[in-house]
Design a protein around this nucleic acid. Structure first.
Length: 945
DNA sequence: TGCGTCACG
DNA sequence: GACGTACGTGACGCAC
């Protein structure tokens, strides 16, 4: 029949199918010859699902799978950097591409691709033809680039979420209807495809602008009218780039597609070729399933030719369903409301030997959080939620605090789960397990053993993306989980999880456990493939209980010391503010860089004001220091000097003496920070809420804040910090004999560098010469540049460059290390520490200023990362090293560990902790330089450090 | 929410 | 020859 009214065309985005399949499945290989085949397997399963699910009256009359032909398209001629950020194709995926075409043909489905065009263009063209002929179109994809096609008989279908994307969904995602989607995309750009867009404008702002002005061209022509200066400038200055972006994102609905719609009519698969293909691929279960459906005999395949670990693993009847092939169905999640249901779950967990677990609580602060419920999942698609502390009222303050219906008593549930959670033969799987670990620890349960999908991702993907659950789910499972905001709201009106109605909580919470178990299934086999199993098992996972215990312990902070300081700072600031207003000749907000800049450079006429990209004058400390030092200026110099003082006090007061008081836990009288293990790309920890890794020390006034961090009665604080650990690592990895010898001999490394560079004997060294050498030593670690060193030392650039040249001449190994590291990054897309930690450098091959950043980051990462690895190793061994001593490890500040210890045991602690720190690289790495840890102790942190 | 600023290693 | 530059973090206040 000829395509027309009543016909329904299904267009499957083939490339999306392949990538989803690849990332979701373990690296399966064909048993007979080791050919990588996982993506093909997933692709076939998904295609078969499409063909069978949609039989019937809503099913397609015409169907095609559409592929990208190659990476080069007409868009590369429009913009040479198009898709330049795309990561390299994985080695084992490349050979699977032609096989997916074969698969499509084997299923007797039209297989379309065209040189010079993306699959999206072909889809756009066919969709146009089909709707013009009066038919309907369903595009099987969730790619946002296709959303511009929705409407007038075209819908999209997200096969992963089993959800239709229509006009309303598009409006929800982009804030504009489908026909305006390209306008929004042109403005917002796309970092994945490297569509430039306008800087500083995201989807939200873009939608706002388009809705106000109607369309992109009107907006650009009336850009002058935009009130916000930043937006106005971004649009005016980037009009050309925005128009280029529009050409990039606009799909070509008139591509010269050879195939006619009629050729795409649905055809039944021919049993012969399809059976041949599937058995050739050695997909046992799928072959059988298809054979059943086609009512033919499956071809003979040796039963024992397939073994677990290969294709058969995923196809075996009792194997866990693969995340990719199991849809997310919220209605399937179970509300555990009675003892029988709980016992069934416990039995299933024991049977499986593993469980994904997630807790819901009343707060993100684990020290204040009350347990509200627990969710569990054993296999993809099946999960439950056990509500424990939900209250009626759902945010209505007058509805009372009565417990919700359908909840088991918390203590009984915890008593039933405790043996399971502490059972050495049952693996507990979490996403950010430190959180749940602490919640359970406060309830007397110590979880072990466990896996953490966040840390797995961190070990494999550091530098590529973040490792939060929602992001990982979207990226690796193609599923966007329910947002917590949709349950709790946000801002002032946000409710706590105990006020969420139980049936809503079931969907959200169980989904998290479901996602976690799927991520685990997806990641586990890949740890090996990425060669980071050791990193995960020795540097990430064991840190969880260590950090959890440190955070639970907290550090004692004396609020009286802080409030006295706050008052003193407030007084000084008021005095300075009055003087500043006097000097300015008018009152203004000293805390506003914008107003300050206008006072200095406009009202007072200081020359040389430089405006940044937002149009405001720069008034950073370096700028103000220059003005303050220029006594010819008179009043502006005085004003700048006072603003510098005011800024310092303001910082100390707002960030430290005021804010820290609010972080003292009323029950413990201590401050409990939270360390993020997977926050910093290099392997460093980051401390938040509050950040205890940036407590002042460099100025005397700031340093006194450390006096508020005190030891308990009869206790002392002990601090041990690595001496010059990054330079020692540099000496080792760059193999610099003179530096290594200096560290062995224990000489002042900066003085020695200066002596080598400038020919000054050590005993005649001046502080100034040493200072310069020190700056160069640090510069090397940061990926030195003449400009950077010149700015740091405030010397002419040529002079700085001359120093650097001398340095490289004297220590040629440094240059070699840098070149080697950058070359490695370009070749592999990541760099590595001595301990095997990988840090990805996706921008290393870009052009322009970005290249400089990426290059320096690549040089720094192995050094900073190795130092981070070393102190991690020390921390992980510390509980054992100080066992029996009345001491607790409290804080880590990158190269420093802070302990609280009974007075009598100070010396024992120092020797035990020092031994652990100085020996931390062993036995994994034998360093050519000694590691040295310096110790201090006192009643407070200022004395101890 | 993004930016400027500044605290730390 | 010009580009624009030290590495890694988190928190605060301002301005939109």
């Amino acid at each position: 029949m000829s395509f027309g009214k009543g016909c329904h065309l299904h267009l499957i985005d083939g490339s999306a199918f392949i990538f989803r399949a690849y990332h979701a499945l373990p690296p399966l290989t064909r048993k007979s010859d080791g050919l990588p085949i996982g993506a093909v397997a997933g692709f076939c399963n998904m295609l078969w699902g499409q063909l069978t699910q949609n039989k019937g009256k809503t099913g397609p009359t015409h169907i095609a799978v559409v592929f990208d032909y190659s990476s080069k398209t007409f868009r590369d001629d429009i913009y040479d950097k198009y898709k330049a950020n795309r990561p390299e194709l994985p080695e084992d995926l490349r050979p699977q591409f032609p096989l997916t075409r074969d698969a499509t043909r084997a299923f007797n489905v039209a297989c379309l691709e065209m040189e010079g065009y993306e699959a999206d263009d072909i889809i756009a063209t066919l969709a146009r033809q089909a709707t013009e002929a009066g038919g309907d179109v369903t595009i099987i994809s969730s790619d946002k680039d296709l959303m511009q096609l929705v409407g007038n008989g075209v819908v999209m279908f997200d096969a992963m979420k089993n959800r239709t994307i229509d006009r309303d969904e598009v409006i929800e995602k982009f804030g504009v209807p489908p026909e305006r989607v390209v306008d929004v995309q042109s403005l917002a750009g796309d970092s994945v495809d490297n569509v430039p867009g306008a800087p500083g404008i995201g989807v939200k702002t873009a939608a706002l602008l388009i809705n106000e002005y109607g369309d992109l061209e009107t907006l650009l022509s009336r850009a002058e009218e935009i009130k916000q200066p930043k937006r106005r400038q971004a649009l005016i200055e980037n009009a050309d780039l925005i128009r280029v972006s529009k050409r990039l994102v606009t799909l070509d609905a008139h591509a010269p597609v050879k195939e006619t719609l009629d050729e795409l009519e649905v055809r039944d698969p021919e049993a012969g070729p399809l059976m041949d293909f599937l058995s050739q691929m050695e997909f046992r279960t799928l072959t059988r399933r298809v054979a059943d459906a086609l009512k033919v005999e499956p071809p003979a395949m040796a039963e024992n030719s397939l073994t677990p670990g290969h294709v058969d693993q995923m196809a075996a009847a009792d194997a866990p369903p693969q995340p990719e092939t199991v849809p997310f169905v919220h209605a399937d999640y179970e509300h555990v409301r009675d003892r029988g249901a709980l016992d069934r779950w416990i039995a299933a967990i024991r049977e499986a030997g593993r469980v994904a677990i997630d807790t819901e609580t009343t707060s993100l602060d684990e020290m204040r959080a009350e347990l509200v419920g627990i969710s569990l999942s054993v296999v993809a698609g099946q999960a439950c939620y056990i509500p424990l502390g939900h209250r009626q009222g759902g945010g209505d303050l007058f509805a009372g605090d009565a417990p919700s219906e359908g909840q088991l008593p918390a203590d009984a549930v915890l008593a039933a789960l405790k043996p399971l959670l502490e059972d050495g033969s049952i693996l507990k799987i979490g996403q950010n397990m430190k959180y749940d670990w602490k919640i359970f620890a406060r309830l007397g349960i110590r979880i072990a053993p466990f896996d953490d999908t966040m840390l797995m991702s961190y070990a494999m993907h550091a530098g590529q993306h973040n490792h939060g659950m929602d992001g990982l789910s979207e990226r690796y499972l193609g599923h966007k989980p329910i947002e917590i905001k949709s349950l709790l709201g946000s801002g002032k009106s946000a409710i706590t999880f105990d006020r969420v109605p139980v049936d809503e909580a079931v969907k959200y919470a169980a989904e998290d456990a479901d996602v976690t178990v799927r991520l685990w299934q997806a990641f586990k086999p890949n740890l090996h493939r990425a060669a980071v199993t050791t990193v995960y098992e020795t540097l990430e996972r064991p840190l969880v209980p260590v950090l959890a215990d440190m955070e639970l312990a907290g550090i004692r902070v004396d609020p009286n010391v802080l409030s006295r300081m706050s008052n003193a700072f407030a007084q000084k600031m008021a005095g300075l503010e009055a003087e500043i207003h006097e000097l300015a000749g008018q009152p203004f907000n000293v805390g506003s860089p914008k107003q300050l800049g206008e006072i200095l450079f406009d009202a007072m006429g200081v020359p040389g004001g430089e405006k940044g990209k937002t149009g405001a004058y720069a008034t950073g400390a370096d700028v103000l220091e220059d003005i303050a030092a220029n006594t010819d200026l008179g009043r502006p110099a005085d004003l700048a000097a006072r603003v510098l003082d005011w800024r310092q006090l303001s910082k100390l007061k707002s960030t430290y003496t005021d804010a820290l008081q609010n972080h003292i836990n009323p029950e413990t009288g201590r401050v409990h920070t939270s360390y993020s293990i997977a926050g910093a790309n290099t392997g460093r920890l980051a401390s938040t809420d509050p950040n205890l890794q940036n407590i002042p020390i460099r100025t005397e006034e700031g340093r006194r804040i450390r006096e508020a961090f005190v030891a308990g009665p009869g206790m002392r604080l002990v601090s041990l910090d690595y001496s010059q650990i990054e330079l020692r690592i540099l000496a080792h990895v760059a193999d610099i004999p003179a530096l290594k010898q200096a560290f062995r001999d224990g000489i002042d490394i900066h003085a020695m560098t200066a002596s080598e560079m400038f020919g000054v004997p050590l005993d005649q060294m001046t502080p100034e010469v040493r200072r310069r050498a020190k700056a160069i030593n640090f510069g090397v670690i940061y990926g030195i540049s003449g400009f950077g060193l010149a700015r740091n030392l405030r010397i002419p650039r040529a002079e700085a460059q001359a120093f650097i040249d001398t340095y490289f001449e004297r220590f040629p190994g440094i240059r070699e290390y840098m070149d080697r590291t950058v070359a490695f990054a370009k070749e592999n897309g990541f760099v590595q520490t001595l301990f095997g930690r990988k840090i990805h450098t996706p921008e290393i091959n870009s052009k322009g200023p970005t290249a400089g950043f990426a290059r320096r980051a690549a040089i720094n990462a192995p050094i900073q990362g190795a130092a981070a690895d070393i102190i991690r190793r020390a921390m992980i061994r510390m509980p054992q090293a100080i066992r029996g001593l009345p001491a607790t490890m409290l804080l880590q500040v990158h190269d420093e560990l802070l302990f609280e210890v009974e007075e009598a045991a100070v010396d024992d602690l120092i020797s035990a902790a020092r031994a652990a720190m100085e020996g931390a690289a062993h036995p994994a790495v034998h360093l050519d330089v000694p590691l040295v840890a310096d110790a201090g102790q006192g009643a407070n942190w200022a004395e101890a450090h």
